[in-house]
Computed example of a mutant assay.
Amino acid sequence: MTDGNSADVGAGRTTSRRGFIIKSGVAAGALTGLAGCSSVLGDSGSSNTITMVLTPGTPADARRRYKPMQNLIEGEVGVDVEMQVPQDYSAIRPALESEQAEIGMDDITLISNPDLMDVYGTTVTGGSAFYFSMMVTNPDSGIDERTDIEGKTMAFADKLSTSGSIFAVYALKEAGLDVGDAPSGQPVDFEGSWSNHDIALEKVGNGEADAATTWGGNGIPHIAEDTELPDRVEEKSSFLDTMETETPRFRPFWWSFPIPKQPVYARATWDDPAKEEIGNVLLNSDQDLIEQYYPEDYNEEELPFTTLADTSMEEYEPVIMRLNDLGIELGE
């Protein structure tokens, strides 16, 4: 989808050009306690450089994972691409609004103001445009279901991570636990900590947390090959071939339904022929093409992108519903 999603903002709702509704509370206010963008992204570089903001994580790891995508854009379009890794999700939208960045790739920023972005599509890896939120614990922890988290400690990723926080907090609430003001505040029935996907797993591994939530691409490598998986995970996860490739070993006890993978979008105010060219390259990429842009010693299991699926805001309605239910207001 190269025409993007524009929106008319009225009292209590935001309606996209395609008619999908973002309920009141999503596009106004700010989630407190999160950093701004100026000190995170810094100077975006020269006017000849396109800045692409990755999702928060360990900078070296994130840049390595997306290196084939960077190489693809540079090689096929003939532009320079600089990859920036913010400290948290709240830094991404200000970077786009202040024109420090041209391209982003997270659903939370897109949902916060669809009128700010022109959407290229949803990332596809291993033939699937979906991924999963999952909860894991140590094999001998005695935690078998969500209600067992009561009185325990749960490690989450970034407060605004779809899989690492929002879906998990909602799932615990749905199970009957009192989540209090989480993720913006502390839950009541259990203790929560928020960081990033990698640190959340580290906390379980070193005994700082009883359980953690993360996304499938990060958690599946830590589970045993003989783990019994739900049918939906067997059918739609593109990370099953990574099972039992990382340590320590964890045991999953909850999986979400399939969540659309992250969108890739460009800021609407970016006026450059390269904008449309990049969209066409990403939408028409395939495994054979992206493999030509692997750096040396690249492990294709790391790859978070093969091509883009042509999608719209409708696919992200489950995320919007959870944001509304948890009272999360995304900053202006």
Rank of each mutant, 00 (worst) to 15 (best):
G185T: 13
A30C: 15
S90D: 11
S161N: 12
S285P: 12
K236Y: 11
V136C: 12
N196I: 00
T32W: 09
L323N: 10
Y120G: 04
R249P: 05
P318T: 05
V77S: 03
D140E: 08
T49G: 03
A155S: 13
Y131G: 12
P59I: 09
R232V: 02
L282E: 06
E150I: 11
M313I: 07
E145S: 13
D226Y: 00
D231K: 14
S112N: 02
T214G: 15
S141C: 11
E301D: 09
Q84D: 15
V9C: 08
F250Q: 04
S285G: 06
V169R: 14
A171G: 13
W254N: 15
E74Q: 08
M321C: 01
D158Q: 11
D107Q: 12
K23H: 05
E291S: 06
Q287I: 15
Y294I: 01
L177D: 03
L41A: 04
L283A: 13
G57E: 02
L308R: 03
E225L: 00
E99R: 07
V169T: 13
A171D: 14
G33Q: 01
S195W: 01
G205S: 10
M117L: 11
T311C: 14
A182L: 12
Y120M: 01
D144C: 07
N5K: 14
E234C: 11
S193Y: 12
S16N: 10
Y170T: 11
G192Y: 14
E234R: 12
S16I: 06
N71A: 10
L289G: 15
R267P: 08
G42L: 04
A155T: 08
A211C: 11
G42F: 03
N138I: 06
T311R: 08
E225H: 03
M243P: 02
P248Y: 13
D115M: 05
S133D: 12
I111A: 13
D310W: 02
D241H: 10
G121E: 01
P263V: 03
N218F: 04
A274Q: 07
E315Q: 03
D241V: 09
W254A: 13
K261N: 10
R17H: 05
R64T: 00
T311I: 15
T147V: 09
P273V: 07
L282P: 01
S312V: 10
A309D: 15
L96K: 10
T125C: 07
V26A: 00
Y66D: 08
I108H: 01
T122K: 02
S90Q: 02
S46Y: 03
S133Q: 14
R232S: 12
T15M: 15
P295N: 14
P304C: 14
I278C: 04
D144A: 13
I328N: 14
D189N: 09
R64M: 07
I320K: 00
G331K: 09
G331M: 05
P260M: 01
L229F: 13
K152R: 10
T227R: 07
F239A: 04
L110F: 05
P94H: 13
T2K: 14
P248K: 14
E208V: 14
A268G: 07
I290Q: 02
G33N: 03
D272F: 00
E234V: 12
A224F: 00
D3I: 03
R18Y: 11
P258S: 12
T2E: 15
W215E: 06
R146K: 06
N324A: 14
N284D: 14
T306W: 09
M134F: 10
G33S: 02
L326Y: 09
R63E: 13
T109M: 05
A274S: 10
